[in-house]
Design a binder for these strands. Structure first.
Lengths: 185, 185
DNA sequence: GAAAATACGGAGCGGTGCTCCGAATTGTCA
DNA sequence: TGACAATTCGGAGCACCGCTCCGTATTTTC
């Protein structure tokens, strides 16, 4: 019957989430957790009880987005032009990676570490991307020797390069355009 | 007459460099500077006097390598097949980026910050790569809408993606192969 | 060998991630 | 309504980080 959560706990949970969202957006995924707790008007211990790791915090903020991306991939995998569908999806993936600086690194770390709270949603997204990739390969529109892991790494690498640039969105667009040509068979 | 350097100063300088080389190789470019000083058998203050910033330390370790890469680009720019020459050079660049984890990030940061001690050699390398790129574009072998900044960002992004992977060298090779196709016009 | 120039080393400051436990708050039941 | 139990809170404290500052030690010069 431990379904009921104490009122203050629920309140602090939400305060922490909005504070974290703002901090990650302003200072990247390596923002100070102390600052986040302070901004939420909460002790540092409270933050760690609600979210034992930084990944747990990210997971709470991003899981729904990754799920949406997974669904989007499944939806696009039925498209008539699987090659274009794949590129469309890659574009959306890269666009989402720009919201928090450091996000590509967090995603790659989560994929590497099965213990990470982010792992499940990231892996699900990769699998969906892999499905999309295979469709495009079977249609002969994309090089056959590319794996799902490579596809994700490529997208993350381009998104990372965007972060390092003065105009991230513009840089990602150009690099994605280059990569698109390289994926075509 | 301040040409003469005190004997202990020169000795500590060298001790710090070898300690830094080992630390960066083992733990990446964000290795603890205190550890490096300790490993060199030297106080933390001594480290900071010899190398005021982490970039200064990196610069001392990498300048010659970047210079060599610049010369290599100039040499390759006279090749008969400028497209292949560019890809060859990109391969060497990416291969060198694997020596220290975090190196691509340091290079991109140095290119962004003109105050950085690493800036000069990085910018020189970028310029040389730009020359190589232009030759390949004039020969009609590479897309005309790619800039030197994009080329460097691309290489850094792929190298970064390699770092995140279980088998960096293998991942970089595959991603570079994809990018190569995308650069062709 | 004494004096001047130079370099050394680490205590100390403010920051980080993270833990641990006494104190305060909340929900429950008489 | 009030007392008790369960739950949650909050921040002191630890070890680490980058970096500065200055009394002390070493080296060179004369």
């Amino acid at each position: 019957m431990a379904e009921t959560v104490r009122a203050d706990a629920r309140r602090n949970h939400d305060l922490l989430l909005t504070a974290a969202r703002e901090a990650f957006a302003a200072r990247g995924t390596d923002a100070s957790l102390r600052d986040i707790a302070r901004q939420a008007g909460v002790g540092i211990g409270t933050l760690y009880r609600h979210f034992p790791t930084r990944e747990a915090l990210l997971e709470a903020l991003l899981a729904s987005r990754f799920d949406a991306l997974r669904q989007r991939a499944e939806q696009l995998s039925a498209a008539a032009a699987p090659g274009d569908a794949l590129l469309e999806w890659l574009g959306e993936l890269a666009a989402g990676s720009v919201t928090y600086r450091g996000l590509p690194e967090s995603v790659m770390a989560a994929l590497r570490d099965e213990q990470s709270r982010l792992h499940a949603s990231c892996a699900g997204m990769r699998a969906a991307g892999g499905l999309l990739l295979r469709r495009a390969q079977e249609a002969g529109e994309v090089r056959a020797d590319v794996t799902a892991a490579q596809l994700l790494a490529l997208a993350a690498g381009l998104a990372w390069a965007g972060e390092q640039s003065a105009d991230p969105a513009d840089m990602v667009r150009h690099l994605l355009s280059i990569a698109a040509g390289g994926l075509r068979s």
